[in-house]
Amino acid sequence: MSATEVSSASAEFARRQHSPVQRLQHQLHGKPWLSPLFLLLVAFLAFYIATPTFLTASSMGILFQQTAVVAALAVGQTLVILTAGIDLSVGAIMVLSMMVMATLARDDGMPGIVALLIGVALATGAGLLNGLLVTRINLPPFIVTLGTLSIFTAIALLYSGGSSIQADRLPDTLNFLGEGFGIGEFRITWGIVVVILLYAVIGFVLSQTAWGRYVYAVGDDAESARLSGVPSMRILLGVYTVAGLIYGIAAWILIGRAGAATPNAAPDANLASITAVVIGGTSLFGGRGRIIGTLIGALIVQTFAFGLSQLGVDQQWRYLATGVLVIVAVAIDQWIRKVKA
């Protein structure tokens, strides 16, 4: 067999016409965030037609503020899901971190910055614990984080005595991310700025560094990655630890957003973060997805909630819509994965 024979065969193959559907499949394979972006734009348009106040600067400011906490958590969740894992303890770690920050700093008990650092360090340690259980004891991430979800929730409740701490008893440092500035009617909190920075930093790391490439490799095929010289266990441990750090930052955003530290805050944060990641086009089977998709996914979920509430529609429609979206997103992912050259 000669080389020319092979190349002519491949040229013939390339000439074979792809149907429009196949071309779409190819586009989505390279850019899995395209379909959620399309959906977001459609949702914006639909809500704008239904209620023109939806697309005003002040409404958009509120929408972004409402999205901030879940969007921050979803950054960590994306890292974990890219490694073919899942993190059910996101909300629990965030709440535990928040209650520790608030309790330590309450009534000037401790300088705000010190309490903040302790809270974030604790969240990082909680992520590290998840990572150690996954990599050292080789437990499935689902089981590990299901366990730590209960453990961290219980510790948060026991530690805080189950009571809330209002913003007026907290130092300015902890409340800072709830403050912001207005561009006309469009109000941006520092929390939103932090979220944007989180996406920029993790987006950079995932697309531009070797570590980011290893995250995808470990999630796609851990054994092949190991044989290729990727330190799989170290990457996994790093992912869970960085995720913990991000949940700690989310705790800080949540205090500012809620104006209080409440032990039973954000009860649906776990599922909301997973929903954002999945709707954003990241594969639950690992190795595929873009962080920008997660931001779009978080915005989609919140757009439905916000738009439907502006319309005065029963909130159950929002959950119904979210459920449909999750199933559709995973179905699209399955289809994209069957792409052929």
Binding site: R213, Y216, A217, D220, D221, E223, S224, S228, G287
Partner: peptide
């Protein structure tokens, strides 16, 4: 034998 390539990359 299992090639050790990462399909998604």
């Amino acid at each position: 034998q299992q090639l050790a390539v990462i399909p998604a990359l």
